[in-house]
Nucleic acid binder design. Structure first.
Ligand SMILES: [Mn+2]
Ligand SMILES: [Mn+2]
Ligand SMILES: [Zn+2]
Ligand SMILES: [Zn+2]
Lengths: 144, 144
DNA sequence: GTCTTAACTTAGAATAGTTCTAATTATCAC
DNA sequence: GTGATAATTAGAACTATTCTAAGTTAAGAC
């Protein structure tokens, strides 16, 4: 089992420390915002949400902190189309379903064996460190 | 069997016609450039290659034509990280392997049943129109 | 063949998203 | 506390892309 599978705000200080980084109010509130509403917000959206708690934060800091969280493996940067990067704090293996009618993105949990099956298609000489799966289509009802 | 699985320059005029669009020298040379070197170039890279044949073409036209080719389903726009969109004329079902040491992107053909297996993880209410699979890692030797 | 009209291309301006720079502020080790 | 280092900040700069408005080309009507 990989470490910090259940992401909590407390996990943050630990992860930062093991990377030789400091826990700061800005990093904490940004991580909290990501955990609170897991709708894959953009940096701008994170900025807007963070400002209600911390009105003096700068957009540059939001970018800096998001990048830090990604480097710590607490957050995934998600890019499946042209347009701003989105951020996802879900650390379980999961795919993304992009609902083209609503523009929203949903997490789809993946059974452990599926990623193995998918990776099995790689010819010899290809060594994959990660796999990303993205669906596009319509989701009827069921928002989360 | 889906139409125009084997992409040729000739397929272009047909596809454009059925979409009510014109075949133009710019569209032809851009599509030819994509077919000739299938390394998932960016719009800027396409622009540079096209200019050796057609020095007066504009970058705006390159963007316009690439978008047209994507709309005609002759080319896939590929986005798996922040940065410029890349373009792929491979119409077979395939995944992308992004080699992080070289920065290059390789096509990985997918067996027909794999996409079904992958789509089977979707809960009821999710109707996927397309699936994208991206690997990241190192490819030892074997460039194409 | 000319005319008409719509499609297409073009250069350059504008925009969006992100990164960089340089100055300030906060934190840590001692 | 002092000095060194890390982090934040505002704003400028940058990259990729889209928009605008003008010019060009080509298809269809006659
Ligand atoms: Mn969308
Ligand atoms: Mn890369
Ligand atoms: Zn996610
Ligand atoms: Zn491809």
């Amino acid at each position: 089992m990989s470490p910090a599978i259940s992401a909590t705000p407390d996990a943050l200080a630990q992860r930062l420390a093991t990377s030789g980084l400091r826990s700061t109010p800005q990093r904490e509130v940004i991580y909290g915002v990501l955990l609170k509403k897991r709708d894959h917000p953009t940096a701008d959206e994170v900025y807007a949400r963070v400002r209600t708690d911390m009105p003096t934060i700068s957009l540059a800091t939001v970018y800096n902190c998001l990048e830090t969280l990604v480097q710590c493996d607490l957050v995934r940067a998600v890019n499946f189309e042209r347009g701003p990067t989105r951020y996802c704090p879900n650390l379980r293996p999961h795919a993304h379903f992009h609902d083209e009618s609503s523009g929203s993105t949903h997490d789809i949990d993946l059974p452990a064996d599926l990623l193995e099956k998918v990776s099995a298609v790689l010819p010899p000489g290809y060594d994959a460190k990660s796999v990303e799966i993205t669906f596009r289509g319509r989701a009827t009802k069921n928002s989360s």
